[in-house]
Design a protein around this nucleic acid. Structure first.
Lengths: 125, 125
DNA sequence: TGTCTACTTAGCGAAGTTGTTAATTAACTA
DNA sequence: TAGTTAATTAACAACTTCGCTAAGTAGACA
């Protein structure tokens, strides 16, 4: 789980953290302000924030005893880039996909995946 | 972690699983075919696949002793919808964001987040 | 029937996550 | 100096995840 994308997805896999990001999207906020809407302890919030920081989604600065947090979208852009491949499937742009399938499908049974010489029955659609 | 989006993000937070999705984006594949590129045991693959199935990202069918798997993009569409809010930050369409910030920022210190009556020093930028 | 292939389930251990409370650090304030 | 506020760290319990090996199920085929 050391790669950037995995870290980002893992950070996003929590409703509390996504809620915090949504709040930061509306503007900077301190740790207490981010904690307010949630019914969990400050240490728990602090740790959620650390997860977001480690994922590069949040940057903390200092202002006296406060720690204003700011949203950093670079990792989300990487998620968006990753999504591009799959977006073709649900945005109706099937042109490139269809072409892709036509190119890849015939290679299926010669790929490393098929370990037995036995042929699988092809179902006609 | 019971909500759909969290389950989807958690499923995506693993390079092996994302690799399997990428393979399925090129066309249907059996469990063995999905296992082939990875240096892990079949049971491990089977479980990764179950995670993807539980997230609704993969649908398994039956063909004799084979289990052809197919990509299901509905959960990815939901991720894409969730991304929409943040996409404004890195796609150069700052118009709505700027407007948003102008509306939200003045409310900051009257929000539930500030528990003390004490005013925080505002830094001029 | 017996064996092969494809795949899943069970059981284990190591490691990580998420919450808690209690204690600690750091900065402001009276 | 002493007290308050903001936030973090430490220590712990409950639970999940991810890998493994071994064993089990189910279909094809000789």
């Amino acid at each position: 789980m050391s790669d950037t994308l995995s870290t980002t997805f893992a950070a996003l896999a929590d409703p509390t953290r996504r809620s915090m990001l949504a709040q930061l999207a509306r503007g900077e906020a301190t740790v207490s302000e981010l904690a307010a809407p949630h019914a969990i302890s400050m240490p728990a919030i602090s740790r959620h924030l650390k997860v977001l920081e480690n994922a590069g989604l949040v940057v903390k600065s200092r202002d006296a005893q406060w720690r204003p947090c700011r949203l950093e979208v670079a990792p989300l852009r990487r998620v968006d880039d990753w999504m591009a491949v799959y977006r073709e499937f649900f945005e109706g742009r099937f042109d490139r996909l269809t072409e892709h399938l036509k190119t890849m499908q015939p290679d299926r049974d010669t790929s490393a995946g098929r370990r037995t010489p036995r042929q699988r029955k092809e179902k006609r659609s």
